[in-house]
Design a protein around this nucleic acid. Structure first.
Lengths: 200, 200
DNA sequence: AGGGCTTTATGATTTCGATCATAATGAAGC
DNA sequence: GCTTCATTATGATCGAAATCATAAAGCCCT
């Protein structure tokens, strides 16, 4: 008799391979599914094996802010390992497959396995750099320049609406900027909703 | 004979107390001094014992972006432990005293001392949260609301000019917003250059 | 094939922040 | 005390992004 229930989760990326098996599980998400919601109790952190997930924070004024767009190979919700709740929504932008790492297991590994901890630190340091890039992007005042920079940074992968949210601009402004840039010959517009930088 | 050269550096905050003594040094900065500059070779990370230091990044377009304003108890340049150069300028906003932790010593401690590593991860996780707050702040479109949020977040501690840079606004706009908010009775203006939220 | 929905797209208008200009206040240095 | 300088502060103008409005194109579902 073949058991699919006991099927092993394979290819756990370093350093998470050293976590006990009971601390790891797998989850599939369809477009629009929430991996977790802001203020939910935090049970785990995640590794995105494939797909794309947006981390969206809701401000007091009811505004939505895309903090981060996670793609294959990214980890999600590391800070929540130290916090008892999540600080933003994690919404699947594309069909995604994530590995869940139990919060307690991660905490335990952190204090007993220094290699694990070191690798974890490295991941977090990378995150910090990413946020800094994001801040740098938001500091660009001109919508046209900001859109161009965002495009150069490879951030237009989903819809233009998502792209606009990531850039902190209205979608109208982004459409206009994209149209301008196309007219200027700085970017190409191969199809409806598709834009890309001119090759050099 | 009393030796001041050999004077011990006291009160090294956890987890850095476990670093070897030769990996720790102390430095004092006057207003405007640079702890390091963007693209300098990274030799150390830092703990700010007192004062305030702004991390400022220069974009390609020559624009200055305040990524982070470090105050007492903050660590600075953690990501640079994994990088061979600094990614921004660190400029002292107030007279500051910093502890330097040699990059190699930190790396070594990270892989051998799991308690050190765990504490380090926690610090970085905190940093990530801070950057998220900053992103959230920058996402507020109205200058008035942004200034108010920044004030509520306790970010106006130095000059209004620095405050403006942190908020990504021109100082004129910030002065006007502060004047408006004062007129609205939402904040108090006890003295020139001083503003604070109305107590409830 | 058709109805409802979202995304893409652009036009018209308004608003608000940037920019430029100017001046008063206070601090630092001589 | 006087000069120099940065910070604080406000006024006038301009431009660009937000807002409001509208519509076509593509998609999902039946």
């Amino acid at each position: 008799m073949i058991s699919i229930i006991m099927k092993q989760i394979t290819d756990i990326p370093p350093p998470f391979g050293s976590l006990p098996r009971h601390g790891v599980s797998l989850r599939e998400l369809r477009v629009g599914d929430a991996l977790f919601r802001q203020d939910d109790a935090s049970r785990a952190m995640f590794f995105l094996r494939s797909g794309a997930i947006n981390l969206i924070r809701h401000t007091e004024a009811g505004q939505k802010v895309t903090m981060f767009r996670a793609t294959s190979g990214d980890t999600i919700a590391e800070p929540s390992v130290f916090s008892d709740h999540y600080h933003c929504d994690a919404i699947s932008e594309q069909p995604s497959i994530v590995l869940s790492f139990d919060r307690q297991s991660v905490l335990a590994a952190m204090t007993t396995d220094s290699e694990f901890a070191a690798a974890f630190v490295k991941r977090l340091a990378g995150q910090v750099q990413t946020y800094r890039r994001q801040l740098e992007l938001l500091a660009i005042r001109s919508a046209k320049d900001r859109v161009l920079a965002g495009l150069a940074d490879g951030r237009l992968t989903g819809t233009v609406l998502d792209f606009a949210a990531e850039l902190g601009l209205t979608h109208e402004s982004v459409y206009r900027a994209l149209a301008d840039l196309t007219r200027d010959g700085r970017i190409e517009h191969p199809a409806r909703g598709k834009y890309r930088l001119k090759p050099c």
